[in-house]
Every structure is written in C-alpha cells, then in structure tokens.
Amino acid sequence: MSELLQVTNITAGYGDGPAILDGAHLTVEPGKVHCIIGPNGAGKSTLMKAICGMLTIRKGDVIFKGKRLNGMRPDQILREGICFVPQERALFPKMTVRENLRMGGFILNDQKELERRIDGILERFPILRERADQHAGTMSGGQQQTLAMARTLIIKPAIVMLDEPSLGLAPKVIQEMFDIMKMMSAEGVTVLLVEQNALMGLKNSDWGVVLDLGRTLFEGPAEMILSDPRIQELYLGGKKAA
C-alpha cells in the first residue's frame, strides 16, 4: 500500500485544554474517498483540524507524502496540498461567488492563471456561473456547499477534507454533493470526508474510519464496515440507519 497521508496515534486538544484526540489514526490512499464516522463529539472535526494545522499535535505524527506536517501552520499545510472545508461557515458571506473563488486561489501567485482557473470552475458548475456576482451568503445551502467544494479545486490539491458537507441539506441535494465528491475523486483528488449519516457516507466511500471518544476504533474498506454486525449495532443504528 502506498499511502498518501498517514496519521499515527495522535493526541491533540484545544489550547491548554484536555486531549480531545488520543489514539486517533487513519490512512489515506490516493484517489479514494474516505469517510470518518462516529457519534457527536467523537472528535471527527477535531481530527481534521489537527491534520490541517489548526491544532497543536501533542503526540503522534501526521505524515503526508513522506513529510512530517506536525507543527506546520495551516497556510503551509495548504501549500503542501491539503485543503480543509470546515463544518458550515466555510465561505465569505459578503463576497461574491467569484471573489470567494479568488480567495480559494489566494496562495497562487500567477493572477492570470488564477482567473483562468476561476473561469474553468464557473464553466463546470453552471449554478455558480449564474450566480458569479451574487454574494455567497445569499445562496441556498446546497449552492453554498457546492461553492465551498468547487473552491478547493482552484489550487488542485492532493487531498480535500470535507467536514459534514451534507449538513442541513435536503436528501436530493445531499446526493448532488456526493456526486461532486465522486467527480473530484475521479479527477484524482483524494477525498476525506466526515459524515453524520454513517450509512450514506460509507455507501459513497471506498474507505471507512470509525472514531469514538477521540480514538480510532476501526478502519478498513467501507463495505467491510458496512457489513460488520458489531459496528452496525453501535454506529449504524442497527440494520436500518437513520
């Protein structure tokens, strides 16, 4: 196995506070969709924040393409190729769609190239093109999430981490978000996703990670998790998940 990102038993928390993560690990393989599941407060968002440099890692390592990312700032980790879309509030509400996309390419120095890529994204996402000059904050939840995901593509990252992209969206719209993720993954962007609806998340993923109380309980192929009776019982709400 040639892993792209390797998180080994990390311990991390907020400020001087208690360790929220303790014994969290995961393996990310290139080109696949990975889904982290677990109950509320398990530390799923915290794990993503630790990977992207928003939290100090107290123990353990985050290794990306063979390079240790511990202690690097979020902007440095972004430049390495890991892009994080936080749970809700990922956008600049009073900037237009186009300005949001421009911010997505903030680390690019070539402004002409940036404009070219923005046009490319607008070409591919007609709902964004129609609203290019609308303030992001005035769009629907699905449109905002589409913008947040599309915006990551501007810098052509290796890994995109999405924290609950389906939050607050209608089922039909949620499917659209998963379709966008599949498209991203087909283009060679590796996706790491947190999904509240474990069943739905795993069905749309290749790899699953079960996190609880800040530690990884299990990780493996998504089908394997889906068919594990014990995990079904605990995290998928029995046979029929909500």
Binding site: C52, M54, R73, P74, D75, L78, R79, C83, F84, V85, P86, R89, A90, L91, F92, P93, K94, M95, E99, R102, M103, G104, F106, I107
Partner: peptide, 23 residues
C-alpha cells in the same frame, strides 16, 4: 488588492481565511 482581499476575508471569516492560506 490582494492584501485587501485578505483583509476582507479575515474580517468576514477568520478561520476560513486562514484555511485558504492567509497569514
């Protein structure tokens, strides 16, 4: 200006600005 974008972005959503590479 590019710095102006960064200032506005930080004003509207500091965390998102940081995640997009703004110091």
């Amino acid at each position: 200006s590019r710095l102006g974008y960064a200032i506005r972005a930080t004003t509207q959503n500091r965390e998102a600005a940081e995640l997009l590479g703004v110091n």
